[in-house]
Amino acid sequence: MISGRVWKFGDNINTDLILPGHVMFLADEERQRYLFQANRPEWINLVRQGDIIIAGQSFGMGSSRPAALALRNVGVTCVIAESLGRLFFRNAVNFGLLVLECPGIFAAFEEGQNATVSVDDFSVRNDATAKTLQAKPVPKSLLKLMLGGGIFPVLERDGLIASALPPTAAKAKK
């Protein structure tokens, strides 16, 4: 179960809004300060670890830039939208951010209410109204990546790539 405070964003929140192109070359920690700067500049100061984003149609449409990573890094644990941009979805899988498509979700929540998401049955509950919606299931293999921290942490745990342990620890291991 994932539970958190809801932020609402509307339709067509594209990657130019989520993560502007001109900060592409900054380090991850600096880059994420620019989240939603064009449409909601105060948000970055208000978001907390564990928050959930609920959005309208086509959240994340647009470019390949690592918008999902930036959202995860500032504490967002889940994005639930009426529909998702396909490249944003792929990025979310690979960067380890839980994202779900859930028709009807936008109208079911007011900003600031609490949402509880089950990754077993993909239900989304509004804790304030007790209304429950059904998100579209994510295939198991992709869910494993989303919940496991993304593509490389999962490969590492599966023993498919060398561990990224600090150099001293790696040496001691040998």
């Binding site: 594209n14 130019d16 809004l17 502007p20 064009a38 449409n39 647009g62």
Partner: peptide, 14 residues
């Protein structure tokens, strides 16, 4: 290709 807010010049040009 695109005309979203801030596309040409970043958020201060939104």
């Amino acid at each position: 290709t695109r005309n979203s807010r801030g596309r040409m010049g970043g958020p201060s040009c939104s």
